[in-house]
Design a protein around this nucleic acid. Structure first.
Length: 413
RNA sequence: GGGGAGAUUCCCGAGUGGCCAAAGGGAACAGACUGUAAAUCUGUCGCGGAAUGCUUCGCAGGUUCGAAUCCUGCUCUCCCCA
């Protein structure tokens, strides 16, 4: 079967398959690559973006990195900013209706997106389109025409709709149009391959159907797994707070990655680094057998990732800093400064609970009080146990406030 | 259009006149342990310079010494029938 395709194509397809969940149809990748090679026409790889949350994190980078691979093979990436579909709000992966966005917010987010995309993609091989360009031109009759090509039963097959329906949660009628709109995007840009997370399965397959209906060669679908977030349970997302942003400072990235559950190391290695798979498996094997401290394998992982978005030298520095702080128990070399003024003092003294609130370590003095009672608060390394202590304002200058295992601040007066 | 069910603190979910700032679980936070992983144990988890204090149980009124719980109207959701 494989021998139908030239060796070069088979090798490329093999590389592109790394980390993917699968391709529809099975040999779609090979077919498209072979055709591009034959005709000399680069493939058009589609990725649709929902301009709601413009922060790119490692989970999203998984898909972008895959696109970059295509670009490095000479293909064209078409990013679709779903400014029009954002009026609907993609129901994918949601258990609740999404709020609609204002046009201004969509524009803002789109701009931010494009800037960040440049960190991973090759600008020369990236085309950015807004789907209002074609969706906005459809009139009601055309929408009806399109909608007639899909049945309610098909749409309700979608896991998130089915789930919400089963749980008696509301589904607005307009949400049902979302897959149709996204499918039409594929027709509009004549996509050869559409990339997406597994939560996009239905939408992407709908694109194939619609393309076929409209006389185009159906796109192949390439599915990427959703990267599990730092909590080890849910998909990485900004709103869940379990993410690592690709633009975050190296020390933050490193520390976040070190808190990753062991079980996720392989996924992160495969999806977020360029390390060859056999090498990854060798590392994990060593960690598993006890030959190497798993912590050090995780450090390797963190270094690889930080190096991708910063540099190898910066990654090494972040590693050293992390070891210094977490292994040797020393203070971080940099910590946020908190300025205390007479405003925070009473008769020249600062109440310790007030201090925590000013430093942003507690939401209110009630919470501060609890943290102290639980022994979480250290001032210059000394555990504070008295909820009522006050310190003279000037005496606090230069002291280090630590709350819990990872929050530090240097006080200034 | 008709009939029925429901809206509780971040989430799920108990609570049907006082013992309710509201059970239980999850998440989160903190402590112990550790490789700042996982697992486990413990504690906290509306606000609060803490008080027999204040503000919460979809929204607005009302009954009552007293309401998350009863009544009226409103908003929203789900189910069944058409």
């Amino acid at each position: 079967m494989d021998t139908e395709f030239p060796q070069e194509v088979r090798i490329q397809a093999e590389q592109l398959r790394r980390g993917t969940l699968g391709v529809v149809p099975e040999h779609g990748l090979e077919e498209k690559l072979a055709r591009a090679r034959r005709t000399g026409k680069p493939l058009r790889i589609k990725l649709g973006l929902d301009p709601t949350a413009p922060d790119i994190h490692l989970g999203f980078a998984v898909v972008l990195r895959k696109l970059r691979q295509f670009q490095d093979l000479g293909h064209q990436v078409v990013i679709i900013i779903g400014d029009y579909t954002a009026l609907i709000g993609d129901p994918s992966g949601r258990s609740a209706t999404r709020p609609m966005l204002s046009p201004e917010a969509v524009q803002d987010n789109a701009r931010t997106y494009v800037d960040q995309l440049a960190r991973i993609l090759d600008r020369d091989r990236t085309e950015v389109r807004f789907n209002s360009e074609w969706l906005g031109k459809l009139d009601f009759a055309q929408v009806i025409q399109l909608a007639s090509r899909m049945t309610v039963a098909q749409v309700l097959q979608r896991e998130d709709f089915a789930d919400r329906y089963a749980r008696h949660q509301p589904i607005s009628l307009h949400e049902l149009l979302y897959p149709l709109a996204q499918a039409y995007d594929s027709v509009a840009i004549e996509a050869d391959i559409e990339m997406g997370g597994q939560d996009q399965t239905f939408n992407i397959l709908a694109g194939r159907d619609l393309q076929r209906e409209m006389g185009q060669e159906p796109q192949a679908a390439l599915f990427m797994p959703l990267l599990v977030g730092l909590d080890g349970v849910k998909k990485m997302s900004k709103s869940l707070g379990n993410y690592v942003g690709i633009a975050e400072p190296p020390d933050t990235m490193f520390a976040k990655l070190m808190s990753l559950p062991d079980a996720l190391m392989r996924d992160y290695f495969v999806l977020c680094t360029d390390l060859p798979v056999p090498e990854i498996d060798a590392l994990l094997q060593q960690a598993g057998s006890g030959a190497v401290n798993p912590r050090d394998v995780k450090r390797r992982l963190a270094r690889e990732i930080v190096a991708l978005y910063h540099s190898a030298a910066i990654a090494d520095r972040a590693d050293a800093e992390w070891m210094r702080v977490h292994s040797a128990g020393e203070l971080p070399s940099e910590m946020p400064e908190v300025l205390l003024t007479t405003e925070h003092a009473r008769e020249g003294n600062v109440w310790i609970c007030r201090l925590l609130v000013v430093a942003g370590m507690a939401r209110g003095t009630g919470e501060a009080r609890r943290l102290i009672e639980q022994g979480a608060v250290l001032l210059n390394g000394t555990r504070q146990t008295d909820v009522n202590v006050e310190f003279p304002l000037h005496a606090l200058n230069g002291t280090v406030l630590q709350v819990g295992p990872k929050r530090y601040a240097r006080l200034k007066t």
